[in-house]
Amino acid sequence: MQVLPPIETLDTPLLAAAQSIYNLYQQVHGVSPSPAGVAVNRQTLRGHVVFTSQPVLLPQECFIPYHHLPEVASL
């Protein structure tokens, strides 16, 4: 699994994409257990919600932990 740089150095579009993916998941599935995070493709900004603590990622993907999502971090 790729280690993320400190959250302050992550691209804003990457964080925005992760938040958008999580928000869409939450709208469709309602209240569910908190995920481990979101896997986002750095090139296309497409991704998916991940529930395992050790996700398997493709080379162009990075993992944004749940607590690093902008809306979640502000709670």
Score class of each variant (00 low, 15 high):
Met1Ala: 09
Met1Leu: 07
Val3Pro: 12
Val3Gly: 12
Leu4Tyr: 02
Pro5Leu: 01
Pro6Ser: 01
Pro6Glu: 02
Ile7Glu: 11
Ile7Lys: 13
Glu8Gln: 11
Glu8His: 12
Glu8Lys: 08
Thr9His: 04
Thr9Cys: 03
Leu10Pro: 11
Asp11Arg: 14
Thr12Cys: 02
Thr12Gln: 04
Pro13Lys: 02
Leu14Cys: 09
Leu14Ala: 08
Leu15Trp: 00
Leu15Ser: 02
Ala17Met: 00
Ala17Thr: 03
Ala18Arg: 02
Ala18Pro: 07
Ser20Ile: 05
Ser20Lys: 07
Ser20Tyr: 01
Ile21Met: 06
Asn23Pro: 07
Tyr25Asn: 10
Gln26Met: 05
Gln27Thr: 13
Gln27Phe: 08
Gln27Ser: 14
Gln27Lys: 10
Val28Gln: 15
His29Met: 11
Val31His: 13
Ser34Asn: 13
Ser34Ala: 14
Ala36Val: 04
Gly37Pro: 01
Gly37Tyr: 00
Gly37His: 01
Gly37Ile: 03
Val38His: 03
Val38Asp: 08
Ala39Met: 00
Val40Gln: 06
Val40Ile: 10
Val40Leu: 03
Asn41Ala: 01
Arg42Val: 13
Arg42Trp: 00
Gln43Gly: 11
Arg46Phe: 10
Arg46Pro: 08
Arg46Met: 15
Gly47Leu: 05
Gly47Gln: 02
Gly47His: 07
Val49Asp: 08
Val49Thr: 14
Val49Ala: 07
Val50Asn: 08
Val50Tyr: 09
Thr52Tyr: 07
Thr52Asp: 14
Gln54Thr: 06
Pro55Ser: 03
Pro55Tyr: 00
Pro55Cys: 06
Val56Asn: 14
Leu57Ala: 12
Leu57Pro: 06
Leu58Cys: 12
Gln60His: 08
Gln60Asn: 15
Gln60Asp: 14
Glu61Thr: 04
Glu61Tyr: 00
Cys62Thr: 14
Cys62Ala: 11
Cys62Asn: 09
Cys62Pro: 10
Phe63His: 05
Ile64Asn: 04
Ile64Trp: 05
Ile64Lys: 01
Pro65Glu: 05
Tyr66Phe: 12
Tyr66Cys: 13
Tyr66Gly: 02
His67Gly: 09
His67Asp: 10
His67Gln: 13
His67Tyr: 07
His67Cys: 08
His68Lys: 11
His68Asn: 14
His68Thr: 10
His68Phe: 12
Pro70Ile: 02
Pro70Phe: 03
Glu71Met: 07
Glu71His: 13
Glu71Leu: 13
Val72Gly: 04
Ala73Met: 14
Ala73Lys: 14
Ala73Asp: 12
Ser74Tyr: 15
Ser74Lys: 14
Leu75Glu: 15
Leu75Lys: 13
